[in-house]
Design a protein around this nucleic acid. Structure first.
Length: 488
DNA sequence: ATAATAATGAAACTCGCG
DNA sequence: CGCGAGTTTCATTATTAT
């Protein structure tokens, strides 16, 4: 409860108004010497500034505090930097109050002191940001990316100490892309009780890569994989491609399965390029083709013929049952999209497997950003009974996919749909918990739209339009945690 | 209207070398 | 250690087809 406890909602209470009114002038005065004062930059970032302001407001900060932070840190500052600044300002405020009562300093000296304190805070942040390949505090990706262990290498780490605030109930499991912009995982970790993320590449579970970070408070000893083990190489997963696979294509694993597939134009271009030669093409042609094959996950389906994966194949590689996303009115395009946004079931199941012994009678699940139900499928395949599942998912085709699966697997529990996480208020949560009992697991991966490397247009980090829903995950988890501790 | 198609780089990582 | 080359990435938007 550290991170959240320190956070917005409860924080500004103590000393918010003398923060805003009293010293506003001095903050504004200081602005002149902050960084660049380019006219262009300022006009260009006005809307950006507005959105950040709105965002900080949504996080629960007072408008005045948020406004000061933006003015002081500059419009280039990230949300997390701004949040840090507000915290620092409040600490400084408290210290000021302390000193003011303790010793009787002249007022201007007080100001001076605070200014330098805040200055150093800002400089510290800038310094951390400036350090490219970070050092001490930076979250580093493990190499190989196997987290606390994978089935082939179990028990890399068997013990870890969680902060008091992180320990359940409920258990929680949060997921997002590992290769997010810098600073994102620090923020995610800080908001989730400072739990160290477990970074895992699903290529250690199946035939396709999927680099993801998982923040959870689950036990990490005695995990076990789903059986049967899924195909581990491209050849095992797609045996028909072997016949056409050229020796100079040395791939054994596919790259990350995404939401879009290659164009027909590209596969035709590759075919034409190959048909110009008998036998092996020259190296520069091989290079071109391999680059495209890796970029678009193309596989060999005939002589000189490559093709993108079929949706069925993506489904299988991600560990979903056959036809899980097929039919029911979903378009082919949307099917790729839903699959591309989903969990790799075997990976997630391995992490969740430690729950099986703990809940022999089944569990209640709060599933946020459920998508096509990767978490539910994983739990089901682990043989963990789903008693009550409250599933929050904005897309109606995804909700319908989940409903169909629920029916087809003859679930004995209840499935409750909610459309929007933003409508899942504390009152509604209390109501649900009174009706169905407390939640044993809060699971979900919030939108990666604004974090993912493939996004050319709006890769603007956690404060992005969709990715900021991460903070709703935090909010909801916090409410569930508080309600749970109250009733047990 | 809805669905399919195609065009659109950059940030941040890894690795090897001097 | 720093540097540069090489590699990977849960996508958005505009346009065309159905």
């Amino acid at each position: 409860m550290q991170a959240i406890g320190k956070s917005p909602q409860e924080q500004p209470n103590n000393d918010s108004d003398h923060c805003s009114s009293g010293h506003e002038g001095s903050f504004l005065d200081d602005f002149s010497d902050v960084d660049s004062a380019d006219d262009e930059v300022i006009t260009k970032t006005v809307s950006d500034e507005d959105s950040k302001l709105a965002f900080l407001r949504r996080m629960g900060y007072k408008e005045a505090d948020a406004s000061i932070a933006i003015t002081r840190c500059g419009t280039e500052a990230t949300i997390s930097e701004l949040a840090d600044f507000i915290c620092a300002a409040q600490i400084a405020k408290a210290e000021d109050a302390f000193f003011a009562e303790d010793e009787k300093k002249p007022k201007h000296l007080d100001k001076q002191k605070k200014r330098s304190f805040l200055e150093s805070e800002v400089l510290e942040k800038k310094r951390q940001k400036g350090l490219e390949n970070g050092d001490d505090e930076g979250v580093r990706l493990p190499n190989p990316m196997v987290g606390f262990g994978v089935p082939t290498e179990p028990g890399i780490v068997t013990r870890r100490t969680l902060s008091e605030a992180a320990i359940g109930p409920p258990f929680f499991y949060y997921e997002n892309v590992a290769l997010a912009p810098k600073g994102v995982w620090q923020t995610i970790s800080r908001f989730l009780y400072d739990v160290e993320p477990e970074f895992v590449d699903s290529k250690h579970f199946c035939a396709a890569a999927r680099k993801r970070g998982y923040v959870h408070n689950l036990p990490i000893h005695n995990r076990f994989p789903l059986l049967p083990l899924p195909p581990n190489t491209i050849h095992e997963a797609l045996p028909l491609t072997r016949k056409w696979w050229p020796a100079w294509d040395e791939r054994t694993k596919l790259n990350c399965l995404q939401t879009c597939i290659a164009s027909a134009k590209l596969t035709e271009k590759i075919r034409k390029a190959l048909e110009a030669y008998e036998g092996e093409p020259p190296l520069h042609v091989q290079k071109f083709i391999m680059d495209e094959c890796r970029k678009w996950n193309l596989v060999w389906v005939g002589r000189n013929k490559v093709a993108p994966l079929e949706a069925d194949e993506v489904e299988m590689l991600l560990g979903f049952p056959r036809n899980h996303t097929r039919g029911g009115g979903i378009s082919r395009t949307d099917r790729y999209k839903s699959l591309g946004n989903s969990f790799q079931v075997d990976t997630v199941a391995y992490h969740l497997s430690s729950l099986k012994d703990l809940f022999p009678g089944g569990i209640n699940v709060l599933s946020l950003f459920s998508g096509i139900g990767g978490a539910e499928v994983a739990l089901h395949r682990l043989g963990i009974r789903l008693k009550n599942v409250v599933s929050v998912e904005i897309s109606n085709v995804n909700r319908s996919i989940m409903s169909c699966w629920w029916e087809q697997t003859n679930q004995t529990g209840n499935l409750i749909h909610i459309e929007d996480v933003q409508h899942l208020t504390a009152d509604r949560l209390e109501q649900l918990m009174n009706m169905y009992g407390s939640f044993d697991l809060v699971v979900g991966g919030s939108p990666c739209n604004n974090l993912a490397g493939s996004n050319r247009h709006h890769r603007d980090g956690l404060e992005g339009k969709e990715s900021s829903l991460f903070f709703d995950y935090c909010r909801i988890l916090d409410v569930v945690k508080n309600l749970t501790s109250r009733y047990s």
